[in-house]
């Protein structure tokens, strides 16, 4: 808190924050474009995503985009195009990220020949809109991935303060899980794996997912944020952090599968199988979210 107060004083108090120049804005936008590109290329070059442009339920896509805004606003505090302390600046960053995401996806899909004049509006807009949210996450991560200023202790202390809260920890896990699930959920491979794996293999995958999640976050101490409340047992930590995290990842998986229509007309046990399969990459994403963000 002392660090952030100090910085506010440097900038002349919260009400009169320094207004960045246009050059700074374009540098940030360029980074965001790089981030959007890096994170959305796997999706832009996957056939299932092009097909989703016209097969996805329009209401579910609209819901994903609507849910995306508050999520990105919160994410802006961890990443974002620039360092923000006020909500209105976070909101500005989010909409700039979304603009960059739409432009990035539209430009590349046009170059790939996947969207072209003469194609129906629904197909063109759908194809771009499906990419917008994941690409915007990529744009928001630009500062952390490409910026140089954020690696020092001063900035980390500021972020650490938000991160140490349990809710913040789960939030980062959800974003990490969401990001990897969005990449993989539309592919046929998830469904094929769910249909071909036996129950025992699936239970094995579930156990492995839990162990990896616990190990990545607490034993190997990636990101250096592991902490056990005084007097808490390993089992308590496992339940509070890993099990709760896995539950969040599992729900994210089900939501993403539903959004892409993968659960329609599918028996409950197959939905669970798909969610277990998708939760594996989701959990890895969740565990590494702290490291990336």
């Amino acid at each position: 808190m002392a660090a952030s107060r100090g910085r506010e004083r440097d900038g002349g108090g919260v009400a009169t924050l320094r207004i960045p120049s246009s050059t700074e804005f374009f540098v940030g936008a360029g980074r965001a474009f790089a981030g959007a590109l890096l994170f959305s290329l796997p999706m832009l070059m996957t056939m299932e995503f092009w097909q989703l442009g016209f097969t996805i339920d329009p209401f579910r896509l609209a819901l994903l985009l609507a849910i995306g805004v508050p999520l990105l606003v919160r994410l802006s505090r961890y990443g974002g195009i620039r360092h923000t302390v006020r909500l209105q600046d976070d909101v500005a960053d989010v909409f700039v990220s979304l603009l960059i995401a739409f432009v990035t996806a539209g430009l590349l899909l046009w170059l790939f020949g996947e969207v072209a004049p003469g194609r129906p509006l629904r197909e063109v807009w759908g194809k771009v809109a499906v990419q917008a949210f994941p690409a915007a996450i990529g744009a928001m991560l630009a500062l952390n991935q490409f910026g140089q200023g954020d690696t020092d202790a001063d900035a980390d202390a500021d972020r650490g303060e938000i991160e140490t809260r349990y809710g913040g920890e789960l939030f980062l896990m959800v974003v990490g899980a969401l990001f990897l699930s969005l990449n993989l959920a539309p592919t046929d491979e998830v469904a094929v794996l769910a249909f071909t794996m036996s129950v025992w293999q699936e239970i094995g995958l579930l156990v492995l997912t839990l162990l990896l999640m616990h190990a990545f976050v607490h034993a190997v101490e990636f990101g250096g944020t592991h902490r056990r409340v005084a007097g808490e047992s390993v089992l308590g930590l496992f339940a509070r952090s890993t099990l709760a995290g896995y539950a969040a990842v599992f729900l994210v998986s089900v939501y993403v599968l539903w959004t892409f229509g993968r659960t329609d007309g599918v028996a409950l046990h197959e939905v669970i199988s798909m969610a277990i399969v998708l939760s594996f990459p989701g959990a890895v994403g969740a565990a590494f979210a702290r490291l990336i963000l």
């Binding site: 960045p20 804005f25 195009i81 360092h83 209105q88 909409f95 603009l99």
Partner: peptide, 30 residues
């Protein structure tokens, strides 16, 4: 480099407005 917290410039607000319009239009269209 953008580490210190900064405000929002008019250029960024314009870009943000364009992004907001695009998002709202997309959701409305869908």
């Amino acid at each position: 480099d953008g580490k210190a917290p900064v405000g929002t410039s008019p250029v960024e607000w314009a870009a943000a407005a364009a992004g907001a319009v695009l998002l709202v239009a997309t959701i409305a269209y869908l």
